[in-house]
């Protein structure tokens, strides 16, 4: 039963108030893209054992989507941030690396 802080409301929300949305920071490939690019966008996921960047919606709250960096093995949450963030935030990467020196973005 996870507990994630909605970056919009500032509410520490129970997992039962949230909906999961899979991996974050995917790049959309539309018409005209190669089969490989499209396959990667539609199907290929990191399925990380370790820090996973993922999408959550505060469904039973403000209704907004937000992003989270969460370790799938220990469930440690390194931060939540606005869904309108195109790249993995530097401060979250720094926070992860401060705790896990061998970690890097894949």
């Amino acid at each position: 039963m996870l507990l994630l802080t909605c970056p919009y409301c500032g509410v520490s929300a129970d997992e039962t108030e949230l909906s999961p949305g899979g991996e974050a920071h995917l790049k959309r490939f539309g018409p005209g893209s190669s089969d490989e690019d499209f396959e990667g966008y539609l199907f290929m996921r990191h399925n990380q054992k370790g820090v996973h960047f993922e999408r959550w919606r505060h469904t039973y709250g403000c209704g907004k989507w937000f992003l989270a960096a969460r370790c799938t093995a220990t469930l440690e949450v390194f931060g939540t941030y606005s869904a309108q963030t195109p790249e993995h935030p530097k401060e979250i990467i720094a926070k992860i690396q401060a705790k896990r020196s061998d970690w890097s973005l894949t």
């Binding site: 108030e17 039973y60 403000c62």
Partner: peptide
């Protein structure tokens, strides 16, 4: 008092 909480 005076805080609205959206939840279930």
């Amino acid at each position: 008092v005076g805080e609205l909480r959206r939840s279930r």
